[in-house]
Design a protein around this nucleic acid. Sequence first.
DNA 1: TCTACTGGCGAACGCCGTTCGTGTCAACTA
DNA 2: TAGTTGACACGAACGGCGTTCGCCAGTAGA
Lengths: 237, 237
Amino acid sequence: MTSAARPPWPSPWDAEPRTPKRRTLSREAIVEVALGIVDAEGLEALSMRRIAQELNTGPASLYAHVSNKEQLVELLLDRAYRDLRHPFPDPEQWRTQAKEFLRQWRDNLVAHGDLARAAMQSNIPTTPHALDAAESMLALLRAGGLSDQVAAYGVDLLALYVVSSAYEQSTRTGPNAEPDQSQAYLDGIRGFFASLPGDRYPVLTSMVAALTRDSGDERFDFGLDVIIAGLLAREPG
Amino acid sequence: MTSAARPPWPSPWDAEPRTPKRRTLSREAIVEVALGIVDAEGLEALSMRRIAQELNTGPASLYAHVSNKEQLVELLLDRAYRDLRHPFPDPEQWRTQAKEFLRQWRDNLVAHGDLARAAMQSNIPTTPHALDAAESMLALLRAGGLSDQVAAYGVDLLALYVVSSAYEQSTRTGPNAEPDQSQAYLDGIRGFFASLPGDRYPVLTSMVAALTRDSGDERFDFGLDVIIAGLLAREPG
DNA sequence: TCTACTGGCGAACGCCGTTCGTGTCAACTA
DNA sequence: TAGTTGACACGAACGGCGTTCGCCAGTAGA
């Protein structure tokens, strides 16, 4: 090792090489670093100690900027939602707009590891950018001519679907998503279902092909179509 | 204190009053105790130490019967699903049967604190009684005349809805559900939405009444109806 | 009766979120 | 310019967690 080249006393040129002792910490910096950890390794890898370490400090320092971990995760989620792009509702195309927005919403969550898990804690939007998303969805559904009550319950239902789909997807793909492991994944499920006893699960075993047809976009789009069609079916027109 | 009444040496009549030193532990006993903790105080209160304490032993002893906490939680979930009562599909009444079964499913989850959170980890049923539930639902949807593909995707969608609804409900009611705090809860939400800036959230603030109409059964039933109607809309007939 | 084995379990390891008390720098006051 | 003040940084520690190790004791088979 070359550590012998360094004198034991502090040299002038390496006094405080980084760590300018002050002003380096901020809520934004913490959120950014935390989001990086979640993106790369998932929510489970996120710890106050880990964040502090990545910022060259101790865990206690974080609490000057964030009241606790729960709040930090909420900030992460809102930070992620900040990237959503909101459509201007057009009554002629509201359905396409809605589906595109919901897809974007899910992709945005999936892009941040299993952050969707945090979004499931409370279905009611409370942070600014989560409220923006709800506002946009409500506006789209109303542009589609849905009554207030159906639109209100509908937004809830769609949000529930988007978030839980994203979470399910994230548990499937893992923290660092390999691009094409989905085929192997599907084969695994297929094998499992096929191995079940046909006398106890006659229907399941007879439908393995349909059950394991797709685990990605087609499935998600199917759910979107079903819910939107169901909402329209609740209206007289 | 009356501890002086007890001699410092072991008296014959209190030698091993309980704790027969052996055979008291079993996987079933562990699951039962753990489920009791989750019912009363929620998943967060569940720890190996806590279970062990309730069984008058140390945490290490549990690992002879359960490989880790993750597996234990899976066992809890399957134990809960064991109580589900399955209908025999009748093509004339499949819709009512399906709705009743799904309601029962949700109630069963909500009855066990926030155990639903564990059910969300993987949407694919793998344990015996979870597979039973999927089998029943598939049979019902096929009795309703749905095609294999729509039934397969539909079961997934309904399971996602039931489980995430149950989880949402459980975070609302808390571990020990007060029977009638729902009104105060709704009032809280109403107040929050009403306090939002109307210029940023014009649609949201104009729909507070519809958004906070109900947070319980009516909302859940609405979602059920929407999804089932949407599934039927996917079929030609 | 001896032996082999299985389950029970005390102790410890390395994590975790959070708090306390102290230090130290930056900027305002006089 | 000198003194003061208040906010931020952070080392150390507390009480929890899941899990493993290794020893011990009781049971069952030879």
